[in-house]
Computed example of a mutant assay.
Amino acid sequence: MKIISTNIAQPTLFTWNGKEVTTGIYKKPTDVPIYLGKEDVIGDEVSDRRVHGGEFKACYLFSANHYPYWRGLYPNLEWTYGMLGENLTVEDLDETKLIIGDIYKLGSAIVQITIPREPCFKFAYKFGTDDVLQQFINHGYSGTYVRVIEKGKVQVGDNMELIESTKEGISIFQLFDLLYAVKKNKDHIQLLMNSNSIPEKLKKRLKLFMR
């Protein structure tokens, strides 16, 4: 897996339901390396830290392989890497093979796979329609957030290399499906209850389905 674009955002204002909202979803490619900190990418806008940034969402990765799908749905938008809100656009990133808890070398940083991205109203605003939210869920390829174990720089051309595998775990693709499935896989939920790679808030949310 190779990094083909590094992306950051400046704060962007828009009006939503009569209120002014700031977002960092309008990411653009950079021509310099980016630095992965423990809770965010240095210099990148994180407008609402209740849902972005922090230990389990320090950096967001999305696969370049899914860009043709989204460009096909929205050909009239201005397309650059970073369009899906990712800090790192990664060639051949495959959510079905990214196991929660796995550890990767990413440039000079060390990161751990944590949780998928869930689409929100800011994502819908950027694409100009609420339809994109269900389309994102139906497509199933969410990209992944990572925890930064060791801070470091990442630049275009760097590889994403697996250095430590989780013995028992589920993939980012499986967790994303679990979040929206009507019938929850309780075996998957139980595995997640024993994981230190997802936030307690998500564990509490999933635990409700074990009753």
Results as ranks from 00 to 15, higher is better:
Glu91Met: 13
Lys97Arg: 14
Gly101Gln: 12
Gly18Val: 05
Leu98Ala: 13
Leu93Met: 15
Thr96Cys: 04
Ala9His: 06
Pro116Arg: 11
Tyr67Cys: 09
Pro75Arg: 10
Gly128Pro: 08
Thr144Ala: 13
Asn65Pro: 02
Thr114Met: 05
Tyr141Met: 14
Asn87Gly: 10
Ile137Asp: 06
Gly82Ser: 05
Val41Met: 07
Ile99Glu: 11
Ala9Ile: 08
Trp79Arg: 09
Pro29Asp: 09
Val41Thr: 09
Ser47Phe: 08
Lys151Phe: 00
Lys153Gln: 05
Thr15Glu: 14
Leu13Thr: 11
Val32Asn: 12
Glu95Thr: 14
Gln134Val: 08
Thr144Asn: 07
Ile110Thr: 14
Ala64Trp: 03
Thr80Lys: 12
Glu150His: 03
Thr144Arg: 05
Gln10Pro: 00
Ile42Arg: 06
Gly54Met: 03
Leu93His: 03
Glu20Cys: 03
Tyr26Ala: 07
Glu91Ala: 10
Lys19Cys: 03
Gly53Pro: 04
Phe62Ile: 11
Ile103Trp: 02
Ile137Tyr: 11
Glu118Cys: 12
His139Met: 13
Asn17Ile: 01
Asp48Ala: 04
Glu45His: 11
Lys153Val: 00
Phe121Ile: 12
Leu88Glu: 03
Pro11Arg: 08
Val51Met: 02
Ile103Lys: 13
Lys126Phe: 14
Ser47Pro: 02
Phe127Ile: 08
Gln112Gly: 07
